[in-house]
Simulated assay, not measured.
Amino acid sequence: MMMSVRFEDDFLVAGTGRDRVTPNFTLGEYQAPDGSVRMHREILAAVQMLRDALDRPVSIASVRAADGLGSGKRGQFVWIESGEPTEVVAAARALLKDGTLARVEVRGARVYLEMPDPAALPALIPANALERAIQVTAAFETSGNPYHQVTGNFDGAGLSFGPIQVNFGTGTLPVLFKRFEMRSPTGLKRAFGPLWDEWQTVMKQSRTRQIAWADALSRGRGKADFDPAWKAALQAIGDTPAFREEMLAYAYDVYGRKLIAALAWLHGACPIDIGNFRCLAALYDLCVQQGSLVKAYDAIRARIASEHPQDEFALTRIAVEERGKTAGTRWRADCISRRLCILEREPVRVDEAGQRATRTNPRLYLLRNAPVKDMAKYLL
């Protein structure tokens, strides 16, 4: 998202027509006939998520009320076109179910999409929240479909795959694939096809030999790409619903528990409940990149005593800033900037230890400003 884009009370109100407001849509597509723009973040998110689900182009047909729909709700609805309307409605059902959309109607070739009341956005269920958080974190490192990310041995990890970039270097890739094989052995074998026997052999090798095998198949500049046949097989696995479910379960087990530990410690240090998805997503990103808050315990306590945070956003900001300051000198500004980018849902410039960073993220639209239902209870 371009820094010239401006939001007021979660409504997009300014920017240039060329600015991207989500990966596949520009501000200009949402402008009214008079050139003005006023669209809520949630309806922008809904259109992008629907486009992702359809996996085909979606056209913004109108942002004006029509056919008895949208009156008095400027910025909370949109008319779209994307081929057969019944297919659009079918794809929109999941968005209705999770509260991203409140209403979907067909009028001829056009489909009307309306978001929930902006003053009472529905809470996210934990599984949906964690999947969104995973996608946001993945978008800092990779682009495109996070389940299609296949990275070669540019960083010494051998082969990295998927939205949480499991890899041979940390041993996380074999663990995840063994879990999926136990769940769906025929599905995994079918996806690998003629490569299955070789994959089985690699899975039984030592970590050093696994990395060497992946290094030989790494391609492109700096070995960041991977052999096309193996890449296609892994992407086919990434498209498998059962694999995505297992990957989420694995993320719960690995990073979810780290998140709960961080939340429990913060609550002990300052009795403010943290439940807003933006705060949880920022702390999840911290847990993925830095593991825990442990190295910053003393600094966090000191700032809490000095600043007396009054809400979960202030407390989360203290936590991510102080933990970021314990990273290597080169990466401190980067760590803090990406966490604050999530928290504020916009690029935040950070100057720290002689370094400057202004991180942005193409999936900020996923960060609903709403609570998550029983997050701690779900992950424990």
Rank of each mutant, 00 (worst) to 15 (best):
T326Y: 00
A232L: 12
D215R: 11
A102H: 03
K377P: 02
A296D: 10
D298C: 04
V5T: 15
I211C: 06
A46I: 00
I164Y: 00
P362S: 12
A281I: 08
C279G: 06
S306H: 13
G324S: 09
V254D: 09
T326S: 01
A127R: 13
R221P: 07
D239N: 11
A249Y: 08
D273P: 10
S71A: 15
A233Y: 03
D34R: 06
A376I: 11
L315V: 11
T186L: 14
Y252S: 09
H40P: 00
P309C: 08
S206A: 11
L176H: 02
A138K: 09
I43Y: 04
P163D: 08
R183E: 02
H267D: 12
V372A: 04
E114P: 00
Y30Q: 09
Y378A: 15
F180M: 09
M1H: 04
Q149F: 13
R190D: 11
N369V: 05
T151L: 15
A66R: 13
A314F: 04
G268K: 04
D55W: 08
G70W: 02
T326M: 01
E346K: 12
R257T: 14
N145P: 00
R179H: 10
M247Q: 14
L280P: 07
R368E: 00
D285E: 07
T151E: 13
V372H: 06
Q165G: 00
M39V: 15
W79F: 07
G268A: 06
W79V: 03
V350N: 04
A66I: 01
V88K: 06
V13G: 06
L195E: 10
L27F: 00
A281T: 15
R41V: 00
L195A: 12
L159W: 12
K373S: 13
L286Y: 08
G68Y: 08
G193N: 10
S82K: 07
A296H: 10
G99T: 02
I318D: 02
V5E: 01
A236C: 07
L176D: 01
C341L: 12
S4F: 13
G17H: 05
W196Q: 04
T360E: 08
A305D: 11
A251F: 15
T360N: 14
